[in-house]
C-alpha cells in the first residue's frame, strides 16, 4: 500500500499492465522520452523499452487508427491523446472503426484497446486544453467511457479497461491528477467498469457527479452536512454503460438529486442522468432534479476560468433550493 495521487496511480497501473501482459503496448505523442505531457508514462520507456512505450508523430488519427490495427491483430494497445480537445482528428477512427469492428464482423474481429485522454479545465491552459466533451463519446454505441476521480479507482479502472474485451475511452481529470492522495494497493486489482461508487451515504439528497467536479461536489456535501443535511455522494465513474439502477436506488431513497458536471448544460451527460431519474423514480422525487453544469459557452481562457467552472456555492445553492421543496 502506498499513498499516491491519481497521476502516480495511473503510472503504476500502466507499469503493472506492461509487466503483466506482453500484449500491452503504449503509444502516443511524447509519452516515451518525455514521459507524457502530464508525466503519466514517466519512466515506462526506460523500464519496458521503446518498442512497447512508443513515441509517435503528431497524428491523433494515426495513433488511434494504428492502435486499432494492433488491437485487431491481438495486442492490447493503450493510446494516449494529449488533451480531449485534440482528440477530434481521431474521432473518425473511434466512431467509424474502433466502436464498430465487433458489430461489423459479428465478433470475428474486435478492438480491445484503451484511449487515455486527459480532460477538463481549471489549470489555466491554452484554448482547446480544457474541454469536457465526454458526452460526444458517451453517445457512441460500442464504446465504454470511464472517468476515475480517485487514485484507487484510477488504478483499478485502468487495469480493468486494459483487460476489457471492448474499447474503452478513459478520461482522466487533469485538475485532480495531483490534487488528492490516498492509499492505493500495489497488487493487481480491477475495479468493475459499470457500477457507480457511492462515496458517502446519506438520506436527504443525492449529489451525482464524475471526474474533476467530484472535488467541488465533495466540498459542497461537507458544507451541507455542516448544516445538518444528510448527503449521498455518487461518483458515476462509468458513463457508458451507465449504472441506471445504482442511480435510481440512491434517488429513490433520498428523493432529491443534483447532477453536477463541468461540460456545458445542453446535451451534457447530466441530461441522460436527469432523464433516467425522471423516467424511473419520478414519484420518489420530493423536488425537481437540478443540474449544476458549465455554461453553454466556449470554455474561457485563464482569466475567466472561474466564471465558468461550477463552484461549490452553486452546488450548495442548487441543493438548498432542492431541499426547500
Amino acid at each position: 500500500m502506498a499513498e499516491l495521487n491519481i497521476a502516480q496511480a495511473l503510472n503504476g497501473a500502466l507499469d503493472t499492465a506492461l509487466s503483466a501482459d506482453d500484449r500491452v503496448v503504449l503509444l502516443g505523442e511524447d509519452i516515451g522520452r518525455a514521459g507524457g505531457v502530464f508525466r503519466i508514462t514517466d519512466g515506462l520507456r526506460e523500464r519496458h523499452g521503446a518498442q512497447r512505450v512508443i513515441d509517435t508523430p503528431v497524428a491523433e488519427s494515426g495513433i488511434v487508427g494504428a492502435a486499432f490495427g494492433m488491437a485487431v491483430a491481438g495486442l492490447r494497445p493503450v493510446a494516449e491523446i494529449q488533451f480531449l480537445g485534440f482528440s477530434y482528428p481521431a474521432y473518425d477512427q473511434v466512431v467509424n472503426h474502433v466502436a464498430r469492428i465487433r458489430n461489423r464482423t459479428n465478433h470475428r474481429f474486435t478492438a480491445p484497446m484503451v484511449v487515455r485522454i486527459p480532460f477538463g479545465g481549471g489549470i489555466g491552459a491554452a484554448e482547446h486544453h480544457s474541454e469536457s466533451t465526454e458526452a460526444v463519446y458517451a453517445h457512441v454505441p460500442g464504446l465504454k467511457v470511464v472517468v476515475p476521480s480517485t487514485p484507487r479507482d484510477a488504478r483499478g479502472l485502468l487495469l480493468a479497461a486494459i483487460e476489457d474485451p471492448d474499447p474503452v475511452i478513459f478520461l482522466e481529470p487533469i485538475r485532480l491528477y495531483r490534487a488528492v492522495k490516498e492509499d492505493v494497493p500495489e497488487i493487481y486489482y480491477k475495479t468493475d467498469i459499470g457500477p457507480i461508487r457511492v462515496e458517502r451515504t446519506g438520506t436527504d439528497i443525492s449529489l451525482i457527479s464524475w471526474g474533476a467536479m467530484m472535488k467541488e461536489t465533495r466540498q459542497a456535501a461537507t458544507s451541507l452536512e455542516q448544516s445538518g443535511i444528510s448527503v449521498e455522494v455518487i461518483d458515476v465513474r462509468t458513463l457508458t454503460p451507465l449504472d441506471r439502477d445504482g442511480i435510481v436506488a440512491s434517488v429513490s431513497k433520498t428523493g432529491r438529486a443534483v447532477v453536477v458536471h463541468e461540460a456545458p448544460l445542453t446535451g451534457g451527460f447530466g441530461a441522460e442522468i436527469s432523464a433516467t431519474i425522471a423516467e424511473r423514480c419520478l414519484y420518489s422525487l420530493q423536488a425537481p432534479v437540478a443540474r449544476v453544469t458549465g455554461w453553454d459557452t466556449i470554455f474561457p481562457l485563464k482569466r475567466s476560468e472561474h466564471h465558468y467552472l461550477p463552484s461549490v456555492d452553486r452546488i450548495v445553492s442548487a441543493a438548498e433550493r432542492t431541499l426547500e421543496e
Binding site: V25, Q51, R52, S61, G62, G65, A66, A67, F68, G69, M70, A71, V72, A73, G74, L75, P77, D92, Q93, N96, H97
Partner: peptide, 22 residues
C-alpha cells in the same frame, strides 16, 4: 470493406505493427 474513404489505410499499419512486434 471500409466504407468511409481512407480511414482503413492506417489499420493495415497497425496490423503490420502488431505482426512486427510479435
Amino acid at each position: 470493406p471500409s466504407i468511409t474513404v481512407g480511414g482503413h489505410m492506417i489499420h493495415a499499419v497497425g496490423l503490420a505493427w502488431a505482426e512486427k512486434l510479435k
